Simulated scan of single mutants.
Amino acid sequence: MSRNLVHYDIVGSFLRPAELKQARADFAAKKISKDDLKKVEDEEIKKLVAKEEKAGLKIVTDGEFRRSYWHLDTFWGFGGIKHTKQEHGYFFHDEETRNDSAQVEGKIEFTGDHPDLEAFKYLKSITDSSDVTPRQSIPSPAQFYAELVRGPENVTAVKKFYSSEDELLDDISKAYRDLILALYDAGCRDVKLDDCTWGMVVDDDFWATMVKQGFDRDDLEKKYLRVNNGALVDLPDDLRVSTHICRGNYHSTWAAKGGYGPVAKYVFAQENVDAFYLEFDNKRSGSFDPIKEVPAGKEVVLGLVTSKKPELEKPDDLITRVKEAAQFHDLQELALSTQCGFASTEEGNQLTEEEQWKKIALVIDTAKQIWA
């Protein structure tokens, strides 16, 4: 698809305002109704979008204000999936997350009624009179698959309803494609697939543990590519699909390390998306060299500004790094962003809302210097 590149962007999640946090706590304590919570969500999303537009962003999101997690809420919205708890959450560098999970309880399907679809419809309604593009971010199909086989209980549940992995992967792809088409019918022209699976695959320490559990790295990469691309077949030409590849972002901590080299020949060279949003804000992320595998004509959005810390990067340093990346991918097909969102879960990262907006201003101002 053709598109005039803006050259600056965001990943999508924003720190939850105090009013929203209080409303979610009151709803959990059964002090307010679901409708009452929705009213607060609507109002806070409206305020957020106004701030995004004022900041100069051309692509806006609802901040993921209706979600607890960047990924699990989407999974729970599909038919055949139930909300479960595991013995442990996800293990990050300094913390363990909450222990929620998603588990198969029937054949997986998009039922036509999904929280992400309803969330987008509201975002669309409040941006119709402006010139910004409303984006819907959803976790990738590969991320869904990874959750469904996370731990023995989830694997056992899958085997009750699926006789083969081929059937499971096909159903995941179809459910996702149906959701994407429903979003398109609701007016969505920008969908982003958030994906930590590739970021985990590149971590050698993580893989030492996975090998002990019987996983094969090459085989899993092929499955991830298959299930993602299976959801992206025969989509409308005017729908921009991108993917954000991350190594974990929870309360300013991280889950994995390693450069993109081991997965570049799969995801960069072969995934059927228009743009790649990539984490490059620290030494854990490796060099820019792997982005040479991204085909010409596709955008690479460099996540050089960290969303994990309040300290502002120096514009000159960012400009230098963008020029380094341009040795491996055309400068005119590069863009600048934060490496991830500011609140992949409702806990949020350890910085203030004011510091969050300063980060975004830095991205925009620096990009305008590079791509004047």
Rank of each mutant, 00 (worst) to 15 (best):
V300P: 00
K54E: 15
K107N: 11
D317W: 08
L302H: 00
F144W: 04
S33F: 08
K38Y: 11
K46D: 14
L123E: 02
P139L: 07
R3M: 12
G348E: 09
V149Q: 04
S163G: 15
R240A: 13
K223S: 05
Y184M: 05
D234C: 09
R24Y: 05
G106M: 09
L334N: 02
L148H: 04
D35R: 12
V132E: 02
M200C: 11
S285E: 07
K54I: 09
K58A: 14
Q136L: 12
F161Y: 15
R66D: 13
S129G: 12
K58L: 13
P236K: 02
V149C: 05
N272A: 15
L220W: 09
A296H: 07
D9N: 15
N249P: 01
R98K: 14
G248R: 00
A264C: 00
R177H: 06
G112N: 05
I59T: 15
A326D: 06
R177Y: 06
Q369S: 14
L331S: 04
G297I: 04
K192E: 15
L235I: 10
E105C: 14
E279Q: 00
Y184N: 03
N349V: 03
R226D: 13
Q86R: 15
P152L: 06
H83N: 14
A28D: 14
R67C: 11
K314D: 15
I81N: 06
Y277C: 07
L183S: 10
E354L: 10
W254N: 02
E87N: 12
Y184W: 05
I45D: 06
V202S: 00
P315H: 11
Y69V: 09
L312R: 10
E96D: 12
W207F: 11
G248V: 05
G230V: 04
A175S: 13
G106I: 08
S242K: 00
F65C: 10
T352D: 01
P310K: 05
D62A: 11
L235W: 05
H93N: 14
C188L: 08
S285L: 02
I108N: 02
Y8T: 04
I360Y: 02
D237Q: 14
L278K: 00
D128I: 08
K283N: 13
V294Y: 01
Q86W: 12
Q327V: 05
K174D: 13
Y69H: 14
R16V: 01
A146V: 07
T84A: 15
Y8N: 03
E96N: 10
A325K: 00
T253V: 05
G214H: 03
E167W: 07
L220P: 06
R67F: 09
G77K: 04
A50Y: 07
P139C: 11
F120M: 10
K292E: 10
